[in-house]
Design a protein around this nucleic acid. Structure first.
Lengths: 339, 339
DNA sequence: CTGAAAGCGCTTACAG
DNA sequence: CTGAAAGCGCTTACAG
């Protein structure tokens, strides 16, 4: 590694000032075309690398956006992240990513890091138990925050997520219309807005149809394939043998379908199962999963755009945008079959 | 957002110099205990945020590590990333992440970004067609590179990956020992070292057993669930009806098992299928997938540690570390059944 | 143990 | 259209 090349290296070689070089490299109209071309050409030739730390120290804009979610291994978040990446890329923003695994402490550390790096903003799916104060802390230090997927009480920032109560209603009503009367709800936790909203939505749909949603029919917890798989025996042993399961998400549903298969039953024939999210793999699961499209791409795109708009000075008032979910009927649901 | 709080804010308030504050905050033994405590206490009280850009401009160490892989949505990489994250976290390093989707150009842009941010190093699974020059460019600019999963010809840097030829041999030999003689290989591309090595390993195992590996039995391409799913009809229509498929990875295998189920056949009974990687979900697939453990966690941990060691001045000579894969026998393989 | 001063590599008014 | 100079917020020799 030779001598570090900086603006002044170019300036000296070309007998101009660093100010001119700086402006030229950023295509300022203040610089004569000829001068600019000469400078850019030389910079490329000697392999100059722009030092963003120095620039950002001066301008206090870093081009960095922090993104923190529960777990990027979860395809639900991965799909959102892809959309965010696409948007940020297009604006030349770099993003730093972290999982918080629903640990408030880890999330706090991450926000701190973004602040230290002079980040321009943060997009986050808040960890369970995130206090509004954590979000206010970021904003007080000039770091705008945008929430995705989950809400935080009293945090006065934009939120982008699906309409959970409505969406789970679509799935529940679909099963009811097929003739199911004993429908269980599997997965999700009351500790998140998403978990509460979906359970409420299920209860509401059942009540509206005049059906009894027995408390025993709720199996809370599962949010992963493994957990859904493990919950299958529990579901099958449920009192009064429900003929259908509304699952909290696709992962839980796919896992449970695998668990049902292990028990010698066939999902979509013996037991109807619905998912939630419409992950890419929902369509190729066996059987193909009836689920609710939850607009991951929409959420990611809109959240990123909202943040970018805000960075560009737009007045992004704290708004809550609910994406309208849509039912996707496939093979995992059918008319009830008594066991 | 009030007045920006910086070192000198604290220094002024406490009638000490910024040098003392700087040293105190970093727990230098040069500072008297009393002074240090007073400074740290005050810093916390007024909500001081350390400006890493400024510090790193001075020290030329940023605490940032770049990580770039094909696609974080791919659980194979996601599992590696988790391990990397764990290691970096422990050393207080932040990582910025990017997908290159096998586009050399996107990968180059990312390396450029890491350089601009003054990153301390890069861990990458090189995109198809990565020229050694791209890696040399990073190193020439003081950015150490560590490769994972794939090799780049003539790039003189550490590589951590599984022993592909050996691993695929385990799967192939397992099928042979069950009595299969017509075994196809599905998925993977010749454009990566991984793809070539696994195909070679399969050929080698077949030859060693005196079996004919017909070129038609190779279905190149699939690396995702969707692609594996789509390849199922093609496999089932193969000349001489192979009774088993060695798949290039778990995703392809799981997708293909779903495709086989759609065709009314049962994987693990009518057709034997092996995967590769032993992703978390391999064990809960239906049927549970016989596969080859590929040490994702090992790869991630060792790669991260190698980089950290290098940052701490260790002489990390360019070495290639092959993790020894292990066979995991489950339900998707059985004795051959003629169709 | 503490302080004064220089410098990391940029950008931005301000002159000319 | 171009240049000289100050300053972003730290850290690091160097004195004392």
């Amino acid at each position: 590694m030779a001598q570090k090349i900086k603006l002044s290296t170019i300036a000296d070689a070309l007998k101009v000032s660093t100010a001119t070089v700086s402006l030229a490299l950023r295509d300022s109209p203040l610089v004569a075309d000829q001068t600019r071309d000469k400078i850019k050409e030389h910079a490329r030739a000697i392999g100059y690398i722009y030092n963003r730390r120095a620039a950002s120290l001066r301008t206090s804009r870093s081009g960095i956006v922090g993104v923190v979610v529960h777990d990027i291994m979860n395809p639900f978040f991965a799909e959102i992240l892809r959309a965010i990446e696409g948007e940020l890329d297009r604006s030349g923003q770099t993003f730093i990513l972290s999982n918080h695994y629903d640990q408030v402490e880890k999330q706090r550390t991450f926000i701190e890091t973004v602040l230290q790096l002079g980040g321009d903003g943060v997009i986050m799916s808040p960890a369970i138990g995130t206090p509004a104060a954590d979000i206010r802390m970021a904003e007080d230090n000039g770091l705008p925050v945008v929430l995705i997927a989950r809400t935080v009480q009293d945090a006065n920032v934009p939120v982008f997520r699906g309409d959970d109560a409505y969406g789970i209603g679509l799935a529940t009503n679909h099963l009811i219309s097929l003739g199911h009367t004993r429908i269980a709800m599997v997965g999700g936790t009351d500790q998140t807005s998403t978990g509460r909203d979906r359970y409420e939505g299920y209860l509401h749909a059942m009540q509206k149809a005049g059906l009894d949603a027995k408390p025993e029919w709720r199996i809370p917890g599962p949010r992963t394939k493994q957990a859904g798989f493990d919950a299958a025996p529990q579901f099958l042993a449920l009192k009064d043998h429900p003929t259908a399961a509304v699952c909290w998400n696709d992962l839980c549903a796919i896992g449970m379908m695998n668990g049902i298969a292990r028990a010698g039953l066939v999902a979509g024939v013996d037991i109807s199962v619905t998912g939630y999210d419409d992950l890419e793999e929902a369509a190729i699961a066996t059987p193909a999963l009836t689920t609710v499209w939850n607009g991951q791409r929409e959420v990611g795109q809109r959240a990123a755009r909202a943040l970018l708009d805000q960075l560009n000075g737009a007045d992004t008032h704290a708004r809550q945008e609910l994406i309208k979910p849509e039912l996707r009927i496939r093979q995992s649901t059918s008319i009830p079959k008594e066991r």
